[in-house]
Design a protein around this nucleic acid. Structure first.
Lengths: 182, 182
DNA sequence: TGATTTTTATACTGTTCTGCATAATATAAT
DNA sequence: ATTATATTATGCAGAACAGTATAAAAATCA
C-alpha cells in the first residue's frame, strides 16, 4: 500500500521501500502523519463537526491536496477509522499472543486500552468507535459494517483468550468463553 | 413549570393543571411531544448532523417557534439530553427501590437498559450519552458536566445497590461496591 | 534549456446552515 | 368591534461548508 504508485514498467526493487524518485513536484506532507492528524480531529469532534478547513489546518495540506490524497471527507473519515483500528490491533495483538496467566493478561489488555483512550496531547481522547463512529454507523452502512466487524473481532479475541484459559485450567470448565467476552 | 405563566392576580386553582386560558394565538404543538421528537433526532444523528430544518420537519414547528420554545440549537440539545436523562432515571428508579435479591435486580436493570437502547420506531437507538453527548462533551464544558454528573449518579446508584446486597449477606464482606460498579 | 508531470496555492460556485426580522394569524380582553 | 398579545408563517442575511476549476510552482526527463 505504501509503494503501489510505481509504474508497472519500472524495475521495482520489491524489497527496499526507498523513495522511488517520483516525477513531479514533491509532496509537502507525509500521508501517514497527515492521516494521524485527521484521526485526532475526527476523534475530537466527530464527522460532521470536523470541517475540511479544520482538517486542512491540522494537516498542513490544503483542500485539493486532501482530496488528491484521501478522496472526499467520508473517504478520509473511513481511512482514519481504518488507521485507528490498525493501531489498536497492533497494540493488542502481542498481548493476546503472550503466554501469561489469564489475570495478568486481562490486566495488560485493560492497561493498553486505557493507554489508547486516555493518551493525547490535549487530554483524554476516548475510543473512536464509541465517540464518533457509532453515530455515523446508524446512517452509513459501510461504517456500520466496519464497526460491527471490529466488535466481532474484539469479541472473538476475548473469547479465544478465555477459551485458552479454560484449557489451561485457570477457569472452570463450565465457564462459557463467549458469554464472558460480554 | 406547566402553569407558571398565570398572572399573579388571577385566582389560581393551585391544584388542577387545567389549561390556564393563555392569551394570544394558541400553540400548534405540545412542547413535551416536540422535545421527544427532537431527542429522537439528536439521538440518531448527533448534534452537528441534525439541522434545524430536520428538527423543524420532525416536530412540525417552524424555526422561530423552536427558538421561542427551546432557545437556540445548543439549548434544545441540552434540554433534549435532560429529558433523556429524566426518562432513563424514571425507568430505573423503581428498580433500585425494589426489595429484590441482587441478582434479579441486576437482571431487571439490564433488561430496562436494553429496552431503552433498543426500542425505537426505526430500529435500535442506543444510549444518547454514548452516541452523541460524549463527543460534544469534549468541546462543551456544560455538556461535559452533565455527562460526568450522569455517570457519577449511575455509579453511585450501582454502588448503593451492591452495598445493600453486601449488608444483606448476598455478597462477601470483602466485595468493594465502588469497584464492582466499574 | 525546454517540455512534461505532479503537486501546491488561490479562488470560485452552489448549497446548506443558523439565527432573526417582519408580516400574517388566531385568541383573549376591553 | 377593537385592541392587545402570543403564536405561526415566510423569507432574508451572513456565514460556513464541501467540492472543484484554474493557475502557479517544483521537480524529473529529454
Amino acid at each position: 500500500m505504501v509503494q503501489k504508485n510505481k509504474r508497472p514498467a519500472s524495475r521495482a526493487r520489491t524489497v527496499t521501500p526507498v523513495a522511488p524518485k517520483r516525477r513531479g513536484r514533491p509532496r509537502a506532507y507525509q500521508p501517514e502523519v497527515a492521516l494521524g492528524k485527521a484521526l485526532d480531529l475526527f476523534r475530537k469532534g466527530g464527522f460532521a463537526a470536523t470541517s475540511l478547513d479544520d482538517l486542512s489546518a491540522a494537516t498542513g495540506m490544503n483542500r485539493p491536496s486532501l482530496y488528491g490524497a484521501f478522496g472526499d471527507k467520508r473517504e478520509l473519515y473511513i481511512k482514519a477509522y481504518q488507521r485507528y483500528r490498525a493501531d489498536a490491533a497492533a497494540a493488542m495483538i502481542d498481548i493476546f499472543r503472550d503466554e501469561q496467566p489469564i489475570r495478568q493478561r486481562l490486566e495488560r489488555i485493560f492497561a493498553v486500552a486505557l493507554d489508547i483512550y486516555l493518551s493525547g496531547d490535549a487530554g483524554p481522547r476516548g475510543c473512536f468507535t464509541v465517540m464518533t463512529a457509532a453515530s455515523e454507523a446508524v446512517a452509513d452502512p459501510d461504517i456500520r459494517g466496519m464497526v460491527l466487524e471490529g466488535l466481532a473481532e474484539l469479541d472473538k479475541a476475548f473469547a479465544a483468550c478465555f477459551r485458552l484459559a479454560r484449557q489451561k485450567g485457570e477457569l472452570p470448565a463450565s465457564a462459557d468463553p463467549v458469554v464472558l467476552a460480554q
